[in-house]
């Protein structure tokens, strides 16, 4: 028994919703049961109607569509989400999938891709607009290289005070001078220093200088005029 799949459309542009409805109307296997122009209404509709599929715009007047995906999935877990958005930036696409969307289509492709996308998502597959998939794959391919470049994770674990101390150490100040500068005791300054060395995995002042130069805290490669 093939029941019609029930659809809710959430988009703040009424004419665009009309367009989507007309495309969907061509297929007897789908039925638009509700529509909404804001995130709040959209959430209410999906809660109430528990549709099979929600078509969601990521930029809505009252809230981010990304948040909305999360809320829809919480209140109506059986609903699948397909994003139909004006945004083509990779950050939006990645975030939408991370939050639980099953598909992503940019608005201008809707005429050609909407039904294809809906079919895929309804079957439980992921779907990505071919006009954006190129940059996503490129990003994925490039990712490992970027990851290894981020070898300064340790620095992010420093406290603000420790950040203050690192740069002073790198500038060649002694513990006593650092203590004076920051109005702390030499003992406290020494503690900061050893915590920093531990967190950053460094062993000598020279290494601190090199590390600070690499991050850009100081410049050791000054050009002479």
């Amino acid at each position: 028994m093939n029941q019609k799949k029930r659809i809710v459309i959430i988009d703040d542009h009424p004419l665009f919703r009309e367009g989507l409805k007309s495309i969907i109307a061509k297929e007897t296997r789908y039925e638009v049961v509700g529509e909404a122009g804001t995130g709040r209404q959209g959430l209410q509709k999906t809660k109430e109607l528990k549709p099979d599929l929600a078509l969601v715009d990521v930029s809505l007047p009252d809230q981010s569509g990304i948040e909305l995906i999360r809320e829809i999935l919480e209140s109506s877990p059986q609903t699948l989400v397909l994003i139909v958005s004006m945004h083509s930036k990779i950050d939006y696409i990645v975030k939408a999938f991370q939050t639980g969307a099953m598909g992503y289509i940019v608005k201008e492709s809707a005429a050609d891709m909407l039904l294809k996308g809906m079919d895929q998502v309804i079957q439980g597959n992921y779907f990505m607009d071919t006009s954006v998939s190129h940059q996503v794959v490129k990003k994925l391919v490039g990712m490992p290289a970027r990851e290894t470049a981020a070898d300064d994770v340790g620095y992010d674990t420093l406290t603000p005070r420790e950040q203050e101390v690192v740069i002073l150490l790198a500038e060649g100040l002694t513990i006593k001078q650092i203590a004076d500068r920051l109005y702390i005791s030499p003992k406290t300054a020494e503690n900061h220093r050893s915590n920093i060395m531990h967190k950053l995995g460094l062993h000598s002042t020279i290494e601190v200088v090199r590390y600070a130069a690499k991050l850009g805290l100081i410049d050791i490669d000054l050009w002479k005029d």
Binding site: H13, F16, E18, G19, M86, K107, A110
Partner: peptide, 18 residues
């Protein structure tokens, strides 16, 4: 541009397509 012009152009595209 993004929420109005591009949006309207997209709507136009869909409408004409239909």
């Amino acid at each position: 541009l993004h929420d109005s012009v591009a949006q309207d152009l997209s709507t136009l595209k869909i409408a004409l397509g239909i």
